[in-house]
Design a binder for these strands. Structure first.
Lengths: 343, 343
DNA sequence: TTCTCTACTGTGAACGCTCACAGAAGCACC
DNA sequence: GGTGCTTCTGTGAGCGTTCACAGTAGAGAA
């Protein structure tokens, strides 16, 4: 099935057309376009009027050709395909970053590096200078792609602490350890003492820090650590379910569990229900992230909110600063305990 | 906290460097780069060797400046912010389209038009020629943005049938009506006769077609239409829950329900459970989409699979063809009944 | 007057590529 | 030897910007 073709684009107006219309030179129009310094109010106004009249929009290719900047940035997701979009956090991050960039009038290029092949192609694309900088998000941040890009001179900001010790990659992260502490303190305040934990992947700083926070508080409180109450997962729903099952098997007297992601907590709820435990009556469950999964589960999850909107904004801010020549920076943002039904 | 800055990009090699290295002219290098017609095997080889040696990557800006193409395409999502990423279908579509484009070495620009302001800005950006074409996805496809873009001469492909009657926008869609027919036939084959429906938004062709399929089969089968068994939703989980509640109130003898999206079906399951109905023993539930929601619910949803991978591939194919000068086209892809636990 | 300074404006060159064109080389045919 | 054809190659122009530089006008000071 086909339809007749309409339209066909007209040649768009150039800076030349605007200059002629405004009765000034190209240079003046260019100056107005780029901040308007050293332009008389009269010229300024004439140019703006001409721009409105002609419907002029700058040709970014011509500009980029000479400035060397592309005025676009990449959003790089390194994650095997399946997990990629299961986690609602990626989506929120992507959405927030797109918006944050849009407010600077910078387009976002989405780059998915699931396979080694894709990864090579994308790295090549990036290092060729087709983007001015890259926002990197990877699930298990053991990934070194951010370091590699930085090594190649590309401005980079990663979401979450980088794994490489001594890595000089900029990053923005929530305060994982502090969040974990808050949650475990909350569970203690409910009178719980046999508190289990399903950790995140322990080859990632986020996973390690959340576990550290858990241990810290229990030791401080004089409850002590019981290794039977510690199992690890990989942030996926399935691993949360399996983790809770193992915990129940190893420590049937568990009266609370801190699960290091909401998605895993969803899985844990399933396992607990199947085992006949009521939440929160028999077992309190605390999640982490405050993703959409937290409100969708029954009971709704008490969790630690990661401020994804702020994280995104900071990532963009830090990246743009770096593109502007500033040094890499690390930003850690506070989390917040959100009480719902599960604990 | 700051860290010392490393690196700083070197000026990348140009076509000139490659030409010198290979002992040929710019023109010859350019020809090799663009398909290699009218180039001797000797020169071909020399150029390729030089490209490898210098690490040359084409400067897309310089190319675009002269060709007028940007060699990038936009992925436009017109949807209010909240709903945007609740629906897993958007994610799958985005992922598949990104990959389909990546295989053509075309970057995807993500554009979110939640507010009227964003929409204006993005339209301006697109019509300025910063992308060669646009893939449009909108939840309730009453949206006319695709038509507007097409009117402005921009190649466009929409996901799902466009609303505007007489619209000449290219689109790729699953066969909604046929999918609905399959599902209702399946419910009939289970011996169900009091089959309710929670429709999609009836200001969108998808919603209308699925309802039409439902009615068609019931009439064909001689069961007839009972208006009390028809309520409408908006594809959201909440509306599915509310819809199922209304159906139960109006037709307590309902023994099956066709819910026009998996997300709504999830909501319906919640409502049915609360009402004390067992699924599938008391009430069979059929969804639509085969999104991740279908396998995550308990019981897992019997549903109609929309072939999102094929839809994405077709969208990209049709769009590229259109950019290449071909006429707009409409593609309708078959759906498939996926039996799980709920019906 | 003349000089200096500031505020502004115009101009040519350049960014790295593609495209159209001209031309060379080889071959076949008259 | 001329003509035509095909296959290949090099060259100059130009895409729409920005940037550096030169230059003008007006104000204020000497």
């Amino acid at each position: 099935m086909t339809m007749s073709n309409t339209g066909g684009r007209r040649r768009p107006p150039t800076i030349h057309d605007v200059a002629r219309e405004a009765g000034v030179s190209r240079g003046t129009v260019s100056r107005v376009l780029n901040g308007g310094h050293y332009v008389s109010p009269t010229a300024q106004e004439a140019v703006n009027a001409a721009i409105r009249k002609t419907g002029y929009v700058v040709n970014r290719h011509a500009r980029s050709l000479i400035t060397g900047r592309s005025d676009s940035i990449g959003f790089l997701l390194t994650e095997p395909q399946e997990k990629l979009f299961e986690d609602p956090n990626f989506n929120v991050l992507l959405r927030c970053c797109t918006q944050a960039l849009a407010s600077h009038d910078i387009p976002l290029l989405l780059m998915l590096a699931g396979t080694e092949d894709e990864r090579r192609r994308i790295t090549r694309y990036i290092t060729a200078g087709h983007v001015d900088g890259v926002l990197v998000v990877s699930g298990h941040s053991g990934d070194l792609v951010a370091d590699e890009l930085r090594e190649a001179g590309v401005p980079v900001v990663q979401c979450g602490k980088p794994m490489g010790r001594g890595s000089k990659v900029s990053y923005v992260a929530a305060d994982d350890r502090d969040g974990a502490r808050d949650m475990v303190r909350h569970l203690l305040s409910l009178g719980r003492r046999r508190i289990g934990v399903v950790t995140g992947p322990l080859d990632s700083p986020g996973g390690v820090d959340r576990l550290a926070g858990y241990k810290e508080v229990l030791i401080e409180a004089g409850v002590g650590i019981d290794e039977r109450l510690i199992v690890s997962g990989d942030y996926s729903r399935a691993s949360g379910e399996a983790g809770a099952e193992r915990l129940l098997a190893r420590a049937p007297d568990m009266d609370a569990v801190f699960v290091a992601s909401d998605l895993m907590a969803q899985g844990a709820l399933t396992a607990l229900r199947r085992a006949g435990r009521r939440v929160p009556e028999d077992v309190s469950v605390g999640g982490f992230d405050d993703s959409t999964a937290a409100t969708e589960s029954t009971p709704a999850l008490t969790t630690i909110r990661q401020p994804y909107d702020r994280i995104s904004n900071e990532m963009v801010r830090v990246l743009l600063a770096q593109i502007g020549g500033e040094d890499p920076a690390a930003v850690i943002l506070p989390t917040e305990l959100v009480k719902r039904e599960s604990a």
